[in-house]
């Protein structure tokens, strides 16, 4: 059996899954949002600490689920720190998938994009509320 058969589970994904970046909670998040994938029950919360220049100082996640959804959340947190909220609004799903560096089938893309979706919903929520309090 060749390794390519199990290709989404390369060291990059497994390392993030086993030793995630910033898994846990911020003491005083500017905003936080959670969602679950109703099909499989995977669950992710993303919390951001945003400075007064609208720049993400720290990003944390917490969650339960498959290796892809949890590794993706870890990769997301690592990538978005230092970015401004405006930059994050331009952040596209395909860019998120590219960051994972593995080929995902259509059904697994839902796992890979769960934390991205949480982030996006949070950003829209902040826009609507026009106040940097915590959303859903």
């Amino acid at each position: 059996m060749t390794d390519s058969l199990e290709d989404p589970y390369d060291d990059h994904i497994l390392d993030h899954f086993e030793s995630p970046y910033h898994k846990g909670h911020l003491a005083n998040p500017t905003c936080s949002h959670s969602d679950r994938n109703p099909i499989c029950g995977d669950q992710v919360t993303v919390e951001l600490l945003v400075d007064d220049q609208d720049r993400v100082k720290e990003a944390y996640f917490d969650g339960k689920g498959c290796a892809i959804s949890q590794a993706a959340a870890s990769i997301l947190c690592e990538q978005i720190e230092g970015k401004t909220l405006d930059e994050l609004k331009d952040f596209q799903a395909q860019q998120m998938l590219d960051l994972l560096k593995v080929r995902l089938t259509a059904s697994r893309q839902k796992c890979g994009l769960l934390s991205f979706k949480v982030l996006k919903t949070m950003l829209y929520g902040m826009d609507e509320q026009r106040e940097p309090a915590s959303s859903g």
Partner: peptide, 13 residues
């Protein structure tokens, strides 16, 4: 092994 990951590995086989 999360059930999703398991079924993914199985699917590849």
């Amino acid at each position: 092994v999360h059930p999703h990951d398991l079924s993914d590995v199985l699917d590849r086989r």
